[in-house]
């Protein structure tokens, strides 16, 4: 259950990045105008950092889970 809720959180973040990427924008004729390219392409940087952050957090969560599993294994072995 926790896994699913966490995955949905990641999906939400990624989707929101993609949605901003695809929003059609202004009227300048020669620009390949989408939101990702506006403001000196700052949204690209935001996207990269969100991806890095999500990646690092997912990694940290995996390590956390691993430790929890080892803790549980120790508990179970002791009860035998």
């Amino acid at each position: 259950m926790r896994k699913i809720s966490f995955l949905s959180l990641i999906m939400f973040v990624l989707c929101s990045v993609l949605v901003t990427a695809q929003t059609p924008a202004s009227s300048q004729p020669l620009e390949m105008a989408d939101k990702m390219r506006s403001n000196g392409m700052i949204y690209v940087v935001v996207g990269c950092l969100v991806i890095i952050l999500v990646g690092l957090l997912v990694y940290l969560i995996t390590i956390d889970r691993k430790v929890t599993r080892v803790e549980k294994e120790i508990e179970e072995n002791k009860n035998k």
């Binding site: 700052i42 940087v45 935001v46 950092l49 969100v50 952050l53 999500v54 957090l57």
Partner: peptide, 10 residues
């Protein structure tokens, strides 16, 4: 942290 990275730039 997600809020920080997004709002921090925008």
């Amino acid at each position: 942290l997600t809020y920080t990275v997004i709002a921090g730039f925008l």
